[in-house]
Design a protein around this nucleic acid. Structure first.
Lengths: 319, 319
DNA sequence: GAAGCCACTTTGACTAGGACAAACTCCATG
DNA sequence: CATGGAGTTTGTCCTAGTCAAAGTGGCTTC
């Protein structure tokens, strides 16, 4: 989720008398935080689509009943999957759920993946940790990432859209995978050779997991990774390229990232760093792009990465 | 640095022609993300204090020149340190910087910390990693967190505000510390006992490092941690408390987090989870709070954590 | 001199609707 | 099949007020 307004949190409605069973009516600021829809958007939708229709408190301020907030959450989830608000906001909650179910592919998981999903659902944290560790050992880091973590992350995302996973379950999953992968990366790191690869995402792209998967695969191949975390502004990427004598910039884009912005950002970056520094772009957003971008390698699958490293080495024998 | 706004992607001003030397004029949304001051506040200050005084583009929309943004950053930073806007917003930039310098303690770093800062500045990534690893080994996880990572993070933040560190240098630092701490947490995890502690931050609070420091200390004390990463909505925290049979909810707040929001969010959370589940709140924002919040433990220093765990255990002997 | 209380000041989160550009959709043309 | 243009959708920006909560400071009282 991404919100635009940031700090606004209304001290207003939110705390009706703390004691009794309260109706849990939320102020506009609370809904913003909860759903990730900015206050401007909430008011705009009310005007345009006549939904939501919040009640008003003594002071004429909006207060949202829980069922409307729930519907807003579902709509937001579907929007993250590419639906446009106008098309879906009028639908009944039940139809929305049906739509979410049909928009994801529920089937086709092998038993391993299904078993892990079940552990998350059952909140079996220690077992989950252990199972992930086991699979890493059995498959090795490379196959663990491509065959397990990749599909699993997609499955978790799908389940979340269908409302089968709560936000906190998805957060917990993300956190556990991060732990496992970071650990594996630390162990695999050793002989760092060329190429030197800078890893990050553009601003407003918070998807860390993709980046960590990429880092894992690159480290396995013995490349030197310079991870900058998420949301590095273009100008800063350019500075880092110089400071760290980088050979390749690898960028990750989640499905939620707007195609155009990705293409524009990549072109701008291409223009601002030396031609002999390669740019690799990957992630669901990139997979959607039709046309190629001059001077940018579009990575459509994680499997390509080892090969890209090999090719780079072949092209730069003395490095 | 920590940024509060999360999703806003202003397609407006920000990307003037990529090629030439651009003037770097920012739209109000961009300034919001950059400084952490909401659009409402930026417009309000303009009306009340006659600062900032943004220019206007062809369409009458505000565009902020870099020097005003810089001053806004400094003002925000001082506010995070407890100054009130009305008192400082009229001061000249030079005076503000002087005030900021006197408010941050530049001196007093021991040589160890200074040496690490120097490694970051010099972009010596392998040496940085090695040095952090060494210090962890020498000090042990607990002292490493309280005596090294804590002060170091503050020093990096201070240096960033003074413009001595680039964004990418700060990102790299954050990423390295994350690697080291996550690794240490994984190794320290073993006999997990009571209490079961849920760890997260509120929405729009992205400061992961604080959370990881806390997790490290708790794991050392043998507590069971359920880390949810950052930005979990209040309602989800409540659900997670039930699902994971949590004894304590620990929340981390960076300096950039607005006090009011923190207090309101904590009160709301307090009302929505069972009374026998404790709430511990910590971080720079909490250190600023004057009044206590009913039913919430305000943790003003990392050192308190082990003691809190001990006290919890004493109060719940059979757990 | 510390503690409590009150009035005053400061502050920012909310209210309203209108305007416009970027992004998306769709269709026609090369 | 793709490129270009027209029309639609969408969200961010604008205006200007209002009011509650937090902070400040002075007063009284013990």
């Amino acid at each position: 989720m991404e919100i635009s307004s940031e700090n606004t949190h209304p001290p207003r409605a939110e705390s009706p008398r703390a004691g009794g069973e309260r109706a849990l009516l939320l102020s506009i600021g609370a809904v913003e935080r909860d759903t990730g829809l900015s206050k401007d958007v909430l008011r705009m939708w009310e005007r345009r689509y006549a939904f939501p229709q919040p009640l008003r408190d003594d002071h004429g301020e909006r207060i949202y009943p829980p069922d409307q907030v729930a519907k807003l959450r579902t709509v937001k989830r579907l929007m993250d999957r590419g639906f446009r608000p106008g098309k879906i906001i009028g639908m009944a909650p039940a139809d929305l759920d049906a739509l979410a179910a049909s928009a994801t592919n529920r089937a086709g998981h092998d038993d391993e993946i299904e078993a892990i999903l079940e552990l998350i659902r059952a909140h079996q944290l220690p077992e989950l940790r252990q199972r992930l560790g086991q699979m890493l050992m059995r498959q090795g880091l490379q196959r663990f990432v491509t065959d397990t973590v990749g599909p699993l992350t997609v499955a978790v995302g799908d389940a979340w859209v269908r409302g089968e996973f709560a936000v906190f379950e998805e957060h917990l999953y993300t956190e556990q995978i991060q732990g496992v992968l970071r650990n594996a990366i630390a162990s695999a790191q050793g002989h760092s050779k060329a190429p030197r690869i800078l890893l990050t995402t553009f601003p407003s792209e918070q998807h860390r997991l993709g980046m960590l998967m990429v880092e894992s695969l690159l480290v396995v191949d013995g490349a030197t990774c310079i991870p900058l975390g998420t949301e590095t502004p273009g100008a800063e990427i350019a500075r880092a390229v110089g400071a760290h004598r980088v050979n390749v910039v690898a960028l990750s884009f989640s499905a939620a990232f707007p195609d155009r912005q990705a293409a524009a950002g990549l072109r701008e970056l291409r223009a601002s760093i030396p031609r002999d520094v390669e740019i690799w772009a990957g992630g669901s957003c990139i997979r959607r792009l039709r046309r190629s971008i001059d001077g940018v390698v579009l990575v459509r699958s994680l499997d390509q990465l080892p090969q890209l490293v090999t090719e780079w080495r072949a092209a730069h024998p003395r490095a």
